[in-house]
Amino acid sequence: MGIFSSIMDKILGRKKPEAPPAAAPAPTATPAATAPPPPPPEPVDVEAVLSELAAEKGGGGNWRTSIVDLLKMLDLDSSLDARKELAGELGVAAGPHGSAEQNIALQKAVWAALAKNGGVVPASLRD
Rank of each mutant, 00 (worst) to 15 (best):
D81R: 01
L86R: 02
K84H: 06
G61T: 03
A123R: 09
E85G: 08
G119F: 04
G95E: 07
L76P: 04
W111R: 02
E56Y: 04
L70Y: 01
L70A: 12
Q102I: 06
A87E: 02
M1I: 00
E101W: 06
A82Q: 00
A32N: 01
L12G: 10
E101M: 10
K116C: 06
K10G: 03
E56L: 12
S6L: 11
E101D: 10
E85P: 03
A87S: 13
N117G: 05
I7H: 10
W63V: 08
A29I: 11
L80E: 02
G58V: 01
G91A: 04
L90V: 02
V120N: 06
P31R: 03
V68C: 06
L106G: 07
P36E: 02
L74E: 01
V120E: 15
R83D: 00
A55N: 07
I11W: 13
L114P: 11
K116Y: 09
E89S: 07
T28G: 04
V44P: 02
V120I: 09
L76G: 09
M73K: 00
R64Y: 01
P20C: 04
A24Q: 09
G2P: 15
P43M: 08
A82Y: 03
R14Q: 06
A87G: 14
G95W: 10
D45K: 15
A94H: 03
V120R: 12
E18M: 06
T65N: 13
L50A: 08
T28I: 11
G60P: 02
G13F: 05
E56Q: 15
A93W: 11
P20D: 02
G60S: 11
Q102M: 15
I7T: 07
I11S: 08
I67Q: 13
V121Y: 14
V92A: 03
A113E: 15
A82L: 14
D81F: 04
P38I: 02
E56P: 02
A105H: 08
S5E: 14
L86Y: 06
W63L: 04
R83G: 08
D9I: 05
G61P: 02
S51L: 14
E42M: 14
L12H: 11
P17H: 12
E85S: 05
V120Y: 07
V92S: 05
L70F: 07
A87I: 09
R14D: 12
E101R: 15
A105R: 10
N117P: 05
A105L: 14
R126T: 14
L12W: 05
A100P: 05
S124R: 12
G13C: 10
P21A: 03
R126E: 12
R126F: 04
D127L: 05
P96G: 14
E56R: 15
A23T: 04
L106E: 06
P27N: 02
V121L: 11
A115G: 09
V121E: 04
E42C: 05
E47P: 01
A100D: 11
D9Q: 12
G60A: 08
E89A: 11
E101F: 05
G119Q: 09
P38R: 13
A35I: 07
D45H: 05
S66G: 06
P37A: 08
P37F: 01
V49G: 04
L106K: 10
L114G: 07
S51Q: 12
V92D: 00
L70K: 00
I67K: 10
L114A: 06
N103A: 04
D77Y: 04
D69T: 07
S5A: 14
P38T: 00
K16S: 12
K108G: 15
A82C: 03
S124D: 08
P25V: 13
